[in-house]
Structures are given as structure tokens and as C-alpha cells.
């Protein structure tokens, strides 16, 4: 068992970073917590500080102003850390990739482990993405 799979064996704590997003992915992440999807039954919990997090969920495109903040959040997080890029904007920039403030997709700024496509991805897709990653590692 590698260090990574050992660290992610038990309850995962999630930290949600909304870049320059349109809220859709953010709402769907929050939706995972509510009774229908109830992510807490897997021990997953959305927490307030990235310093306690195992998973960094990044939603939305990254603009010039929030790029440095994303780096800061990434460096504050304990490693190993799973970075999940959620939605078309997180993966490629989506419709905002042509914008004059666009500062690159998430994987150009920090290493990304899981990509969850969709605009926005459904809560089931977000759960499935993280579970698939855990089963592989």
C-alpha cells in the first residue's frame, strides 16, 4: 500500500475553491451534501480550511486575479492532495477561455489528478469521479 492510498483510505475532507466560475458547479458541489446525494454517508465533509483538506475541488475558469490565490491555497494544503478540476471551465476554460482575463486552465497552474467534465457535471458525476480515483490509487 502506497502512502497515497494509505492517506485516502478513510474519510476524505473536501475543500471547495470557486475560481471565476458561474456558480453552476459550485451549486452542484453543494448539492452533493444535501439529502438526495448525501455525501457525508461516505465520510466526506466540506470543510472551511484547506489546511485540513484531502481533496481540493476547483470549479470554474481561473482569471488573473484568482490565479495567485489558487497557488496560495494549493501550497497551504497538506500533501498528498487530490486535486479535482470540475466542469468544462476547470478543464479547458470553457466558453471563457477566450476572455482577456483568462489565466489558463487549472492543470496549467497546479497538478490535477481528476477531471470531471460537464457543464455543470451532475452531482452523481462528481461523486463517481472521486470514487473512481480512489479505487485506482
Amino acid at each position: 500500500m502506497g502512502i497515497k492510498s494509505y492517506c485516502f483510505k478513510k474519510s476524505l475532507w473536501l475543500y471547495h475553491f470557486a475560481g471565476a466560475s458561474c456558480n453552476n458547479c459550485d451549486i452542484e458541489v453543494l448539492d452533493c451534501l444535501t439529502p438526495r446525494y448525501d455525501v457525508e454517508r461516505f465520510g466526506m465533509l466540506l470543510i472551511g480550511s484547506v489546511r485540513h483538506a484531502d481533496v481540493l475541488l476547483v470549479a470554474g475558469s481561473i482569471n488573473k486575479k484568482c490565479k495567485s490565490r489558487l497557488l496560495e491555497v494549493y501550497h497551504q494544503a497538506p500533501k498528498p492532495l487530490v486535486v479535482v478540476a470540475i466542469g468544462a471551465c476547470g478543464i479547458t476554460g470553457g466558453v471563457f477561455a477566450e476572455g482577456n482575463t483568462f489565466a489558463g486552465p487549472v492543470d496549467k497552474i497546479i497538478p490535477v489528478d481528476v477531471y470531471i467534465p460537464g457543464c455543470p457535471p451532475k452531482p452523481e458525476a462528481i461523486l463517481a469521479g472521486i470514487v473512481n480515483f480512489l479505487n485506482k490509487s
Binding site: Y15, A18, S21, D26, V29, L30, L46, G48, R69, V73
Partner: peptide
């Protein structure tokens, strides 16, 4: 802010 864990824009 600007970044907060619960949801939505910064």
C-alpha cells in the same frame, strides 16, 4: 473572503 468553502463566487 475572498475564498470561502461553502459555495459560490469569491
Amino acid at each position: 473572503g475572498p475564498y470561502h468553502p461553502l459555495q459560490e463566487e469569491p
